[in-house]
Amino acid sequence: MQRLQIAVSSQGGCQVVDVAGEVDMSTCAQLAAALERGREPGVPLVADLADVEFFDASGLRALLAANDGGPRWGSPLRVVPSRAVDLVIEVSGAWHLLAVFPDRRRALEGGPAVRRPSAVS
């Protein structure tokens, strides 16, 4: 089994980057490339990280970079974190910088993001 599995698809009017496995220094470039590949002008981008088992600061940097590019694409990044991802977002204080959603359905619908620590139960 690969350490990181990524798929990019369209769903519910959004581009979705599904990520499973481990995101660390050796795999974060793959995540960053997939997030860039998933961008389309005016189309929301959802990073579904619900199946990520390990996540470190290098993965967070990739998310923040993709989010910073949001205005140029007309839509911020929407993040669906696993517990491992949520923990890094919470500890770093980055939860107020990202649009975090508790599940994929809510991320696809848009609406208000969860703007507090421990978005995932």
Rank of each mutant, 00 (worst) to 15 (best):
E90Q: 12
S26C: 10
I89Q: 09
L31V: 04
E109P: 07
A84E: 05
M25W: 12
V16G: 05
A99R: 15
L31K: 02
W73F: 00
L49F: 08
A113W: 03
G111Y: 00
M1P: 12
V79T: 03
A119N: 04
P44A: 06
G111C: 06
V23F: 07
V8R: 09
E53G: 12
R3E: 14
G110W: 00
R104W: 03
R104N: 06
A50G: 12
P71L: 05
E53M: 04
D56Y: 07
D86V: 09
A57Q: 10
G110L: 03
R61Q: 12
D56G: 00
C28M: 12
Q11G: 09
G69M: 11
F55W: 00
Q2M: 11
R78W: 00
A29D: 13
A62H: 07
L108V: 05
S118G: 13
R3T: 12
R61F: 09
A7N: 15
A66Q: 04
C28Y: 15
A113V: 00
V16K: 10
G93F: 00
L87G: 07
R3Q: 14
V80F: 05
N67E: 12
R83N: 13
R83M: 09
Q15G: 11
F54L: 07
R105L: 14
L4D: 04
V46Y: 03
V79E: 00
P112I: 06
V79P: 01
E53W: 07
G110C: 05
R83L: 13
Q30K: 07
D51E: 15
R116H: 15
L60N: 02
D48M: 02
L31P: 09
A57W: 10
V80E: 01
L64T: 02
V19I: 01
G111W: 09
S10K: 15
L49V: 10
G42V: 11
I6N: 01
G111R: 06
A65G: 04
L4H: 01
I89H: 07
A62D: 10
P112G: 07
V43P: 11
I6W: 01
